[in-house]
Simulated assay, not measured.
Amino acid sequence: MRNKRVKNAFTILEVVLALVVLMFMAIMVTAVVPISLRTVRTSSDFTQATSLVQHKVNQLQDAGYTNLTGPGLGQNGLEIVDGTPGTPATNTLGNATATFEFTDTDKLWQYFAGGMDDTGARVTNATSPRGYLYIAPYAPSSYTNAAGATEYGLIRATVTVQWWTSKGQIQSFSATTLIPRVTVN
């Protein structure tokens, strides 16, 4: 009868071993959770940036070649960029180069952690998210017109969104599109 009772009970060694395994698993879980949360946030930030960049690329393609000017893209035009930049005033040859910002127009601070404080107000500092648009002539599309001037059949537009991680590292996502000159006959 004594043997039967011993067979049904746990030894102290088995209990200690089970506790060690349980502690090891708990330590592993607590080590993995912060990493996975950081990965989820990073993935979310890149998804937001991708969506914002694609939206801006679509706006530029809809705006068309002739509207790729400061006034055309600005608040007095299509409201694609911040303010109303004066340059380039025109871009009829497609040879203008310019950089614009669209941080305020698209309210980028709403899409990234750290862009708003606990009350929902915008945080404005050096690490606030930013959006940039760079336009330039696309050299392979150049040709000489009848007046002897160089014109470009395509304008290259690069859209960049940049933000900072909780560890203070800068991240960015960019996309480039070509906007064709459309001539109506």
Rank of each mutant, 00 (worst) to 15 (best):
M116G: 14
T99P: 07
N76Q: 14
A146C: 01
A146Q: 06
D62N: 05
D82H: 05
I35Y: 07
D45Q: 02
A146W: 01
E79H: 15
Y65V: 04
P71D: 09
L19K: 02
A121N: 13
L60P: 07
Y65G: 00
D45S: 05
G114L: 07
A26M: 08
N95S: 10
A89M: 09
V40T: 14
T50S: 14
T11H: 00
G70T: 13
V53T: 12
P129W: 03
Q110L: 14
M28G: 12
A113D: 08
T144N: 02
V21A: 14
N145T: 00
T105M: 08
V21H: 01
S43H: 07
G72Y: 05
F102L: 15
G120P: 08
I27Y: 10
M23D: 04
Q54E: 11
R130M: 04
A89H: 08
Q54G: 07
I12T: 13
I35A: 14
V16M: 15
M116S: 15
N76A: 15
P85N: 08
Y132V: 05
T69N: 08
T144V: 05
V29R: 10
L19R: 02
T47N: 09
T144E: 00
P137D: 04
G64K: 11
G83R: 10
T69M: 07
F100Q: 11
V15T: 14
P137T: 09
N76M: 10
D106H: 10
Y111H: 07
T144R: 01
L52I: 12
N95V: 04
S128R: 11
N95M: 02
S141W: 01
A9E: 03
R41I: 13
L68M: 09
R122H: 15
F112G: 00
V16C: 06
A9D: 05
L22W: 03
Y138A: 03
D118Y: 10
L78D: 06
L60T: 04
S43I: 12
G115A: 12
G72K: 15
A98S: 08
R122D: 15
D62T: 06
L108V: 09
V40Y: 14
S43P: 03
